[in-house]
Design a protein around this nucleic acid. Structure first.
Length: 439
RNA sequence: GCAGGGGUUCCCGAGUGGCCAAAGGGAUCAGACUGUAAAUCUGACGCGCAAGCUUCGGAGGUUCGAAUCCUCCCCCCUGCACCA
């Protein structure tokens, strides 16, 4: 019997702290004791504010996995209800509401995404995915106001740091709708406590206020003791926002951010951030990360850490095949001579997710190169391409193009210049590549 | 509803009749230097290859000429009132 008892890793909390993943906890030492005592159930919420999660969601998502690996049962809550309302925490302004249909669709997609990261087939600690619309959707306003609202003090709520700036700030307001968000999230915790015996909520540090109020509500409604743990929001040393590139958010959905782009994102991590990110995001042991760091210090020049980070993260999110593809493209473009690639290689790069466009030769004449590259997504505006042309920063199959070539697109894509009769690799600047096929 | 304040290009924020496609900062892109870093310097940064076109909450109006003045409307903020 005892053989099948799930054993928990008593070092979990220490490990998380060592990784810098703990911002705040409730209960102090009691939490450490609680987590090492037995297998517990915990949850983290993800609101459907888009049709995919992005890398900002990885910290709590992977934390669920870390807890599961340590012997606890994770629940991923997808906010079909809370997504309809919008969390005001630390948001500078009121957000526009999405329609119920849209939110419902996004909820389904997030459910699927989230499911890839946690294990559903491991006995008593198998993960679950729940939707808070299941219990909020059918609740009447009056029940909500009497049973939930009654336990909240406005005096208390308006003093929460998370909404303070919205209340204090000139020019921005806070609607009742968003103000109510905290009650919904608190109710989630209380419900999960009752339904699943969930006693710990984790989230980003912006969720502290929502989590603690959920703990209060659970105690008031059900008399249960629960805990909260928040993780730091990922910041960058240079102060710019984490998770954005020029083309926008880095999504987990390969259809929105290709594994190659995803790989490149991590590869471009600043030195000042990279070891911290290895600890935040990967499952490499702390000892191993330290070793990488030590070796990088010894070696002159380029650190190995970024490559490791990119490798680990791409494998984690896009699997072994996604990683292989990303590495193939990277090697072809940045390390090798892509002019020497054979036809099969080029076809493979296309499949691997190298940005690609198919052009008709007959349509080339008369169109400026600027327009062509903007359409291909290589630049946001023609001006940028023009600027690059003026600096000899645009290359097609290795040959530099100048401002005079702008209106000579057919010559730029001359048949005799093509690789294997139809391929052209265009480079803009040092990092942006695009594969064109002209037929 | 009343009174007062306000809505400027991705963000912050100057600009109160021509010199404004609109200062400055941030973000972003490109170049140099590098390691597909950082820092720094340089250039770009409404759209357009260009001629040119379109902007300053919206619609009208005054004027040779408006982001700037007038009218109406919409939205936000602050206070008061309303909450029988």
């Amino acid at each position: 019997m005892v053989l099948y008892m799930t054993s928990v890793d008593p070092q979990l909390l220490k490990e998380l702290q060592g990784r810098g993943l703990v911002a705040q906890t409730t209960g102090g030492d009691a939490l450490q004791e609680y987590l090492s005592g037995a297998s517990r159930t915990l949850y983290s919420g993800f609101d459907p504010t888009a049709d995919s999660l992005h890398i900002g969601h990885l910290v709590p998502l992977l934390a669920l996995k870390r807890f599961q690996l340590a012997g606890h049962k994770p629940i991923a809550l997808v906010g079909g209800a809370t997504g309809l309302v919008g969390d005001p925490s630390f948001k500078a302004q009121e957000r526009k509401l999405n329609t119920p249909e849209v939110v419902a669709e996004w909820t389904d997609r997030l459910k699927q995404q989230v499911s890839r990261f946690i294990d559903f087939e491991c006995g008593s600690i198998s993960a679950e995915v729940v939707n808070n619309l299941d219990w909020v959707g059918g609740m009447s306003v009056l029940d909500f106001l009497r049973d939930v609202g009654k336990h909240f003090s406005i005096n208390n709520m308006i003093n929460k740091e998370s909404v303070k700036q919205r209340i204090d700030r000139e020019g921005e307001g806070l609607s009742f709708t968003e103000f109510t968000y905290m009650l919904l999230q608190s109710l989630d915790f209380a419900e999960l406590y009752q339904r699943h015996g969930c006693t710990l909520q984790i989230g980003g540090s912006d969720q502290w206020g929502n989590i603690t109020s959920g703990i209060d509500l659970t105690r008031r409604l059900h008399g249960g003791q629960t805990f909260g743990l928040t993780m730091p929001l990922v910041t960058k040393a240079d102060g710019t926002k984490f998770g954005k590139t020029e083309s926008g958010t880095v999504w987990l959905d390969p259809a929105k951010t290709s594994p190659y782009a995803f790989y490149q994102f991590w590869l471009n991590t600043a030195d000042a951030d990279v070891y911290r990110f290895l600890r935040y995001f990967t499952f490499m042991s702390l000892a191993e990360i330290e070793q990488v760091e030590a070796e990088d210090r010894e070696r002159e020049g380029r650190p190995e850490a970024q490559r490791r980070l990119a490798e680990e993260m791409t494998r984690l999110v896009h699997g072994e095949s996604g990683l292989t593809g990303a590495e193939r493209i990277t090697a072809a473009l940045f390390e090798g001579d892509f002019l020497a690639l054979d036809e099969g290689d080029l076809e493979q790069l296309k499949l691997d997710g190298l940005p690609f466009s198919l052009l008709e030769r007959s349509a080339l004449a008369g169109e400026p190169l600027t327009q062509l590259l903007v359409d291909a997504g290589m630049a946001a505006a023609g001006k940028q391409v023009k600027d690059a042309l003026g600096r000899e920063a645009v290359f097609i199959n290795g040959s530099p193009k100048s401002a005079e070539d702008n209106m000579r697109v057919p010559e730029c894509f001359a048949p005799e210049q093509a690789l294997h009769g139809r391929f052209y690799i265009c480079r803009l600047g040092k990092k942006k590549y695009h594969l064109f096929e002209v037929r």
